[in-house]
Design a protein around this nucleic acid. Sequence first.
DNA 1: ATCCATAGCGCC
DNA 2: AGGGCGCTATGGAT
Length: 552
Amino acid sequence: MDVVVAPEDGGVVVLELGPDGRTGAPRRLEWEQLPGCVRALEPAGPRWVWADTAVVYPRLLRAGTPVARAHDLRLAHAVLVRSTYLADGLPSAADDRWGPQEHPAADAEPSLLDLPTAGGTLEPADVLAEHRVQQQAVTASAHAGRLRLLLAAESAGALVAAELTHVGLPFDAAAHDALLTQLLGPQPLPGGRPAALEALAARIRAELGAPGLNPDSPPEVLRALHGAGVEATTTRQSELERFDHPAVAPLLEYKKLARLLGANGWAWLSDWVHDGRFRPDYLPAGVVTGRWATRGGGALQLPKQVRAAVVAGPGRRLVVADAAQLEPRVLAAMSDDRAMARASRAGDLYQALVDQGVVDTRAHAKVAMLGALYGATSGEAGQLMPRLLRSYPAATGWVEAAARAGERGEVVTTWLGRSSPVPPDSWREAQRRAGLPEATAAEQRRARAQARDWGRFTRNFVVQGTAAEWALCWLADLRRRLGALPPVAGRSPALVYFLHDEVIVETPAELAEEVADAVREAAHRAGRLLFGDSGVTFVLDVACVGSYAEAG
DNA sequence: ATCCATAGCGCC
DNA sequence: AGGGCGCTATGGAT
């Protein structure tokens, strides 16, 4: 049974929808009454159908009412509008009320005036109609099963995203403050520069003979370097390292510390860490490939340096798991490459390439594989490519085909049905003009370069996007398994972090091994769900630790 | 004052 | 001539 939920002024309208498509009488509930409705219906396991998990679910969580299953119509709409798995498109494609919206911050108490209805109001009938349109479109698809899995995974991911923000990542602010103080000196007044940075700035100015230099300004630094006879073309680390000058070392040190201060310093700490938890806003499918993004807090770029402050509470452990070489494994499965599938069963896929005699070292295996996924043509990766083509013709052929399609301006599609955007008009125009008789050599060169750029995008899209689908299925199945574990002293394991191919579960210490098993079983299940009997193994690195820094 | 592009670096 | 992001600071434009 589905339960359709439509926000309206002051509350929601709830419609129960039977398997025959008939609806019960609409019930109008205040927001405060919705948790009661959920509690009454949840044990039977209905599927909650709503426009935006990000709008409804945080309120339910604050009311202590988790939900087992949902269907997020807006996320589904975004997939279905583009998917080449729908031969006839989605009838509601032009209805911009279902297009992308400015989501409210997850922890903001949503005022009903700014519900996400930019293109108009969503009445209960509209929500119900969109639900039916989507169901019919999926049913008519030649890939209905894959699309259903994708939409279920996407929706489960949206539930997880709200839960991650609600629970938060355990974060020891005092430990982080101590790290900052140790590396930078005491916290400066607002706008001030910490002592360690001030000292480094003084050294840089002295070594470059540039008394007023602001080391935070790349153009100024570049001019000062030139004045001191250092002919660097940029101020980036890899460039500066090539010069032997006494200003280089303090400059690199300055940049490193300034980065820490700017991205994860005291301001970040007070903005994003409260009551011992770091609570970023996750944006499911915030990236074209289907990966998540975050808004604020930089949660998906948490530097290794900072992870020591991610610590489990007393009596608890962190189970940190990441999928080893996920993208090559996904490619092996989707392309049905038997030789690469065999390599996947060896555990360390890169080492297996060495053992199969494809390349001579593990480092070469990694460079070559990433080169194949990203479209490297030159350098070490380019040189190793012929060996990969010979050994894994199906896998390499798959990404090559995606690249060629992109170069022709065509759309490519992931395993479960997420399709790439079409190239921009400017791209098409450049290609068109390069084909005209009067096209200059420069125009043709630029058009070819742009075509290859788009080809690299589509090449990576099919792999990164399918890996994101695997990760969502993993996450969804893990969430279900964790919910089934018995609490210890009233405490249950909880997902607290998700990062593309990595999860952290915070758990009572007694359950750590069971959680680790659940994480592995979920990975196995995700592989079966997507690819059936592909022969590809999805291997995890799992660590049960007190602090994130101890993992991996 | 506010918006935007760029540089540079962090993560996968 | 290696894909996808977010974030900060800077500096120019409005």
